[in-house]
C-alpha cells in the first residue's frame, strides 16, 4: 500500500520546535503523536481548545503547562461550542491567519460532545476539530465509548464467562460529520503520518468547519507493549478495521484501498482488550469488515 497525498510532507522540512512538550501522557501514547504532529503543521498561530480528557489532564496542571501555543481547557461536552465562540471572537477582532483548533477524544466527540460539534459543523464555524480516537474513555480508566469497536473489553464492557465485551458496532463519526456537508472531513491514522499531516495541511487552507478523525492507539487501554503503537495503527488499516478517507466538495473518497486485507487476527490477537476472542469472533469481525467495505466501495471514489 502506498500513501497517497496531495501536499507532499517532507519530514526534513518540518520544524524541530515542539509546541507540545513534557506532557504526562503514558509512554507510547498515540494521541500525543497526533496532537504533536498536528501542531507542527498548524504552527504557532494556533488557538487550541481541549475538553477535560487525557490531553487536558496530562498537559495543564498548574504551574506546569505543556502546550507552547495559546490553549484553553473547556468542559467535556463543550469543545465544539467553545471553539465556535473563539472563532467568532477571532473574526470579530479581525484576527487573520490564525487557526482555531479543537482537540478531543472519542468520548468528548462521539458521545458527550457530539451536540456541540454538530452545532459548529451545521453553522460552518471557522474551526478545525481533531478527534483523537483511542476507542474508549481512557482518561477515566478504559470505559466503553460509542467509538469502542465490537468485541472490545473495557472496564464497563467486561469479557469472560458469559460476556463478550462490547456487543454492538461503533458509531461512524466520519459519516456523521460528512452528513453535515462540511467543507472538509477526513479520517486518518497516526501510523500514516504523511497522510495525516497532509490532511491537516489541507484543512488549514480551507475556511469553515473542518473535521479530522484520527485513530490513536493507546497502549494502556488496548493492552500492548508501548513500542507497538504505530504497529497497531498500521495493522488496523492493513486489516481493514480502520480506513483512511476524505469528504470534500460533497464527495467521499478512500485514500487507500488495500487489494487484500491482512487477517483481522494480526491486529486483534496481540491486544489485551481482544484476548477473550475466539475463532468465531474473528470471523464475525471479518464479516462486519467486509460488509462495511462493500458499502464504502459502493459510495466512494477510490
Amino acid at each position: 500500500m502506498a500513501e497517497v497525498g496531495i501536499m507532499a510532507i517532507d519530514f526534513k522540512n518540518l520544524s524541530d520546535r515542539e509546541l507540545m512538550y513534557g506532557q504526562k501522557t503514558c509512554p507510547g501514547c498515540g494521541a500525543t503523536v497526533a496532537i504533536r504532529l498536528a501542531l507542527k503543521i498548524l504552527g504557532e498561530r494556533t488557538f487550541l481548545c481541549i475538553p477535560a480528557c487525557c490531553a487536558a489532564a496530562t498537559t495543564n496542571a498548574y504551574p506546569q503547562t505543556s502546550f507552547f501555543v495559546n490553549n484553553v481547557v473547556t468542559a467535556f461536552p463543550a469543545t465544539g461550542s467553545t471553539i465556535a465562540g473563539m472563532a467568532a471572537a477571532a473574526e470579530a477582532q479581525g484576527l487573520e491567519d490564525v487557526t482555531i483548533l479543537g482537540v478531543a477524544g472519542d468520548g468528548g466527540t462521539a458521545d458527550i460532545g457530539l451536540q456541540a460539534l454538530s452545532g459548529a459543523c451545521e453553522r460552518n464555524d471557522n474551526v478545525i476539530y481533531l478527534c483523537y480516537d483511542n476507542e474508549a474513555y481512557m482518561n477515566t480508566g478504559i470505559q466503553r465509548s460509542s467509538s469502542t469497536p465490537w468485541g472490545a473489553w473495557t472496564t464497563t464492557s467486561p469479557a469472560g464467562e458469559g460476556a463478550r465485551g462490547v456487543v454492538k458496532s461503533r458509531k461512524n463519526l466520519f459519516d456523521i460529520i460528512a452528513a453535515h456537508r462540511v467543507p472538509y472531513c477526513a479520517t486518518a491514522s497516526v501510523a500514516y503520518p504523511r497522510d495525516f499531516m497532509e490532511k491537516i495541511a489541507k484543512a488549514k487552507a480551507i475556511k469553515g468547519a473542518r473535521f479530522i478523525h484520527v485513530q490513536a492507539p493507546c497502549p494502556t487501554g488496548w493492552g500492548y507493549p508501548t513500542e507497538k503503537t504505530i504497529e497497531y495503527g498500521r495493522l488496523a488499516v492493513g486489516s481493514g478495521l480502520w480506513y483512511l478517507a476524505e469528504y470534500e466538495n460533497g464527495e467521499m473518497k478512500l485514500n487507500m484501498t488495500p487489494k487484500t486485507f491482512k487477517p483481522v487476527e494480526s491486529y486483534l490477537r496481540g491486544q489485551r482488550r481482544f484476548q477473550h476472542m475466539k475463532e468465531d469472533d474473528y470471523r464475525l469481525i471479518e464479516k462486519q469488515r467486509d460488509r462495511e467495505w462493500a458499502l464504502l466501495r459502493e459510495r466512494m471514489k477510490s
Partner: peptide, 12 residues
C-alpha cells in the same frame, strides 16, 4: 536520517 523516529516519537 529518515526521520521516522523523529516523526513517530510521541514526546518529540
Amino acid at each position: 536520517r529518515c526521520l521516522l523516529c523523529w516523526t513517530y516519537c510521541p514526546d518529540g
